[in-house]
Computed example of a mutant assay.
Amino acid sequence: MTENVEARLATLGIALPDAPSPVANYVPFSLAGNMLFISGQVSKAGDGTLAKGQLGDGVSVEEGREAARLCALNILAQARAALGNLDRIAQVIRLTAFVNAAPSFTDHPQVVNGASDLMVEVLGDKGRHTRVAVGVSSLPLGCAVEIDATILVNG
Rank of each mutant, 00 (worst) to 15 (best):
48 G>Y: 03
40 G>W: 06
110 Q>N: 13
5 V>M: 10
47 D>H: 14
108 H>F: 15
65 R>Y: 03
100 N>V: 07
115 A>R: 00
4 N>A: 03
33 G>R: 08
30 S>E: 00
108 H>R: 11
11 T>M: 13
24 A>D: 15
71 C>Y: 04
101 A>F: 02
45 A>V: 03
3 E>D: 13
94 R>F: 02
47 D>N: 15
99 V>G: 00
40 G>V: 01
75 I>H: 00
8 R>L: 06
36 L>E: 02
78 Q>G: 01
92 V>L: 11
26 Y>R: 06
73 L>A: 04
115 A>M: 13
44 K>N: 07
83 L>W: 00
111 V>Y: 13
58 G>Y: 09
26 Y>I: 10
87 D>H: 10
82 A>T: 06
62 E>I: 07
112 V>R: 02
51 A>D: 06
91 Q>W: 01
61 V>Q: 08
56 G>D: 03
15 A>Q: 05
54 Q>L: 05
102 A>N: 13
35 M>S: 12
17 P>D: 10
27 V>S: 09
98 F>L: 12
77 A>Q: 01
16 L>Y: 12
76 L>S: 08
90 A>T: 08
99 V>E: 06
114 G>T: 06
21 S>F: 04
65 R>V: 04
80 R>N: 11
92 V>F: 02
62 E>N: 13
16 L>K: 05
68 A>Y: 00
7 A>W: 15
81 A>I: 00
93 I>Q: 11
46 G>D: 06
78 Q>L: 02
39 S>T: 03
58 G>W: 15
99 V>S: 04
17 P>Q: 03
82 A>R: 04
64 G>D: 00
88 R>M: 02
15 A>F: 04
67 A>L: 11
103 P>A: 14
24 A>W: 15
93 I>F: 00
42 V>W: 12
28 P>R: 14
7 A>G: 09
83 L>K: 01
54 Q>P: 02
86 L>Y: 01
50 L>A: 04
49 T>V: 10
17 P>V: 09
13 G>R: 03
40 G>K: 13
21 S>G: 02
24 A>L: 06
77 A>C: 02
91 Q>M: 09
52 K>L: 13
84 G>L: 11
95 L>H: 04
82 A>I: 00
75 I>Y: 07
98 F>M: 15
66 E>M: 05
55 L>Y: 14
43 S>V: 08
41 Q>A: 07
94 R>N: 10
73 L>C: 02
27 V>W: 05
55 L>C: 10
105 F>P: 14
54 Q>F: 09
45 A>D: 11
71 C>F: 09
95 L>N: 12
12 L>M: 09
112 V>T: 15
67 A>H: 13
50 L>S: 14
52 K>H: 06
61 V>D: 14
71 C>N: 09
93 I>R: 11
84 G>P: 06
29 F>V: 08
